[in-house]
Design a protein around this nucleic acid. Structure first.
Lengths: 232, 232
DNA sequence: TAGATTGTTAATCGATTAACAATC
DNA sequence: TAGATTGTTAATCGATTAACAATC
């Protein structure tokens, strides 16, 4: 079924965690942080699942990939489980992030305070417009895209965020890859092609709205819906 | 296997389209629009799949849920297929969108020009800060959250975008639902609880970065990784 | 007719879920 | 010991993929 290799300690190796589970770990982490701040010391899978918006069977299955961190009949120690998940995700250390494309969205991202507490530090802002080089946003001055290599090297960036228009995105991705970045978060409406070993995640606002529209259309059908089709 | 009901015309009814397929239709739509603008009249599943970043088997399977819009031995008429997909998604008409929370992100979203051409019109900006009511952003003045009902009704909003801090999000969602909105795009880092029949999609930037960090950690292991664990 | 390409089938894979034995 | 809750099993469900018959 699941070809989990096992370590000496009996825990499955990290790469054996299913993608769907990996995508939920940050949600559990956030819920545990909130529950911990509210003073809770111990939490059951039922409680934590509710806080995370999933069912408890899925939560327990997900946690079972990390190891056996609960106590039967009792539940999970909030702080201990929080620490284990944070370690598994890799956010006990800080990751240095470079943002490319300092338009409205790039600025909003650079100002967002929530990244810091979640393991990310924005260490560089880069843009293709030479006239904006040196412009300050908080502590950071905009650098030019031609200096990307140097910026990435000097500041140890391991994640690149693309917030350019769609037609610039592939070029930026190529430069990021050339400078050694192997993790990219893409906000530009474009399909990126990257070499094997480079991870790209995309956040596409129009696509999210279109998925909502698809379902909305079926909840409240438009007044006029033509089913006639002109054969091409 | 797949309990597709069929209409008189033999096409599966809309609600029979798998979610994974629905999520890709906007990607195909965008690729077709770009190919059409480049002058291409006909496209094969192989070409379109490449442009959309998927494999051709998946593309053909996805399109088969919509109907039989291709010609064997030839391919798909670009404009005809583009129209059919747009109709299926529901973006041949415009959807009115209200943004709640006009901070950095809310402003960036309200300024983004790409929504208009993709079937969405931002018709209202709403914030909880009374001192900002009336503030202009483009053509739109900020309204107060207490007037949400009226705004939604008068401007026919069918989609709400939440761009508030996390702790305000559930309250805003409750108000949106109360005012009749049944589709919500949530940018706040919070799990939303809504009644059945209301769709929520979430865009969570920290979560996306954490998923990247998980994989990055396994590509370049940190210099010091403690495996020792203090039992709680 | 020969070549090309769709639309569909069926096998495989991965994710979800309910149920419950293990065990605190 | 009795009650509670985890961790795991196994069934089910949904998504992906390769292969190819249908057909332009």
């Amino acid at each position: 079924m699941n070809q989990l290799r096992a370590q000496a300690n009996g825990r499955p190796v990290s790469s054996g965690i299913p993608e769907a589970t990996v995508a939920r770990l940050p949600v559990y982490l956030r819920a545990l942080t909130a529950l911990g701040e509210s003073g809770l010391r111990t939490v059951s899978s039922e409680q934590l699942a509710t806080a995370a918006g999933v069912n408890s069977a899925k939560l327990r299955k997900d946690l079972s990939y990390l190891g056996s961190y609960g106590t039967r009949g009792v539940g999970y120690d909030v702080e201990y489980l929080r620490y284990q998940i944070a370690r598994e995700i890799g956010v006990n250390q800080d990751w240095a992030v470079v943002i490319i494309g300092i338009g409205n969205l790039g600025q909003a991202l650079s100002n967002y305070g929530g990244f810091r507490s979640r393991g990310f530090r924005i260490v560089a802002l880069v843009d293709g417009d030479a006239s904006r080089v040196g412009e300050m946003h908080g502590d950071l001055a905009i650098a030019h895209i031609d200096d990307l290599d140097q910026v990435v090297r000097e500041r140890g960036c391991s994640i690149g965020v693309i917030a350019t228009p769609g037609d610039a995105a592939q070029g930026v991705a190529d430069r990021l890859v050339a400078s050694g970045v192997t993790s990219i978060l893409n906000f530009a409406p474009a399909v990126l092609t990257v070499p094997a070993g480079v991870d790209v995640r995309k956040v596409d606002l129009s696509i999210e709205l279109q998925i909502l529209a698809y379902h909305e259309q079926r909840k409240r059908p438009p007044l006029v819906q033509s089913e006639e089709v002109v054969e091409s």
